[in-house]
Design a protein around this nucleic acid. Sequence first.
DNA 1: GCATCGGATTTTTTT
DNA 2: AATCCGATGC
Length: 734
Amino acid sequence: MADLLSELNQQQKTAVAVPPGPVLVLAGPGSGKTRVLTFRVAYLIAAMGIPAYQILAVTFTNKAAREMEGRVAALLGGKADGLWLGTFHSICGRILRREAAYLPIDHNYVIFDSDDQVSLVKRVIKEKRINNKDYRPTQVLAKISQAKNDLMGPDEFPIFSTRDETIKVIYKAYQEYLEASNAMDFDDMLLYTARLLEQHPEVRQKYAQRFRHILVDEFQDTNQAQYTLLYYLASQHKNIFVVGDEDQSIYRWRGADYHNVERFMKDFPEAKKILLEQNYRSTQTILNAAVAVINENTNRTEKKLFSDRGSGEEIVIYEAGDDYDEASYVVDTISRQLLLGQAKESDFAIMYRTNAQSRLLEDAFRRANMNYRLVGAQRFYGRREVRDVIAFMRLIYNPQDEVSLARVINVPPRGIGSVTLENLQEIARQHGLSTGDALLLLGSESGKEMETALGRSATRLIPFGRMLADWRVQLSRVPLTTLFDQVMLDTGYELYIKDDGGEDEDRWANVLGLRQVLLEYEDQGLAEFLEAMALVADQDTLPDTLDAPTLMTLHTAKGLEFPQVFIIGLDEHYLPHSRSRDDPEEMAEERRLFYVGLTRAKNRLFLIRARRRRSPYGSYESMQPSRFLEDIPVDLIRGRITRSYEQVDAYELNAIRWNQTYGPPKSSHQKSAPPAAPMQQFFPEMRVSHPVYGEGVVRKSRLEYGDETVEVYFEGLGLKALVASMSSLEVLGD
DNA sequence: GCATCGGATTTTTTT
DNA sequence: AATCCGATGC
């Protein structure tokens, strides 16, 4: 194994060959983190003689898992059989299927993705007759997800307002439906596994015993549930090797908590800490800019990143007239280099904060007749026809799946409308059955009683029930694709999808594409197919064979590198995104996001902003350059940014005029208080009372032009934005 | 039960 | 600008 280590630098060697025990590797960007992980796995197996099946390696994304798998296989030449390597969710799925006996659901559960979650929450909201204007499914789900990430079930759901009480009710019903559907959502996979290990010592013992070595990638992005489950898995041998970088923590909104790094050191005080500081990716110029940006964040362990790649070229800053110009600049710059033969297509990546920003870029590429690869966004698995077909398969696999049943029971239309479905659901409830089981029963010999009870609705339902029953019989007898063809034939889906709309001839092609994927799972089975459908994101499905520039969000860019990187939309409200304006923690995360983007670049970096942009709604808006641009030392930059009155948007301009005329808004009491943090009185979740609107709960509050703007939610009235000094709001004690 | 229309509303990031 | 929802009419 000497030659294995000889390819590594000193710090990397130390990490790879570290003696067993807890280890924390803090790895700067481009410092060979994945390399260390894969070499460590290889080292354990080849040098220390650990059997592969006693090793668990966890990543966040499928992409990372696949990459590790490939590299380990290359290092060991296929001696890694039995190694558990996968994403958190796939590992949990594996454990949960084996240990289904301990769960509220059985082993052929299905996984609900975010669309399924939304459908289910909608149904709950409707059934509970809750005002759907005030309770948006995505918002409710965000709260539920947050709770689950913190290992809280419906009963532990924290209540701070009447709104929370309602959400708790929805959460509870939602969870009941999931169980009745023999289903779990993404968060449940983590939650169930963590609970399983916590509450059943015999199960915990089994896995903790088995996994002599645990390795974790992107540790800074773990949430509470993930941390807990790792903690229990490592409880026996304590050989847990985690790799992370606080500065690249960008999933706070998903419950990630980089404090888990500190928690790790507390829980495993004997842990060795290793820093990887040499960057092999970027030029010193790029690295310096990135360091300057990230140094503005407080509360972090400072790393001394260095590169031996030389200073390289200056960073180019381009200020476009508008967003249209921004896109053209990117495409022009790329095509010029291509024309001159200075670069190849796949050298380039273009990154942005939100998916919506890809639109103009795509147009520009198309106009220039150039290929591009778009990661994420237009989702194959999100297409209606694809989801329909998956829903059929899911229903066959697990007839209790309420969401899939509701989705396809009338697709293609077979005369089963909402009333008929509701009747069926009601009958099912009376019999203590799931809707799907009721439907199956209805289609069978013994369904007579139910048939009479349903009356006219039954005539429509019975044929579908029989069909479903038949498919289920087929499931165990014929190959998956044969079953698939049968479903398409029985339902007349081809005709239905081809007829529909007309313009999109690709739709049937998508269905056939899915059939092709199914073919690959012929040997493994439907369960594996469905799990892959749920857990494999779209970005994993893109062909990386196409030689073309890549378009992606900053989030998906993490872990990747490109010779040339464009980051567009470097304007306030875009990056940093406007939604993080009021929360310093979120602002710090925006900065980390930018840092992640900067450090993707190997040789050249282009930072682009636009003086004005078409707002997502309606007309043009003037932009201010991103505050992050100011943090890049000027000597690293070519090009400059400007700020002028013309660019100030109307709202802000009024405030400026006001100040020029009447002097800055300053309350007479506060003399020379520091300019920041003057006197915010209202904070989210506070209960307040208003003379006219009554009692409400503060959603948001911010200081603006010397006053405080408070957004308050009043039951029955909705959200109101109030100016604190004008509205005599009063804070209510608890 | 289904199609159509008009009005309202909007996701930041993803397993 | 595009999508979703609810109401309306057939």
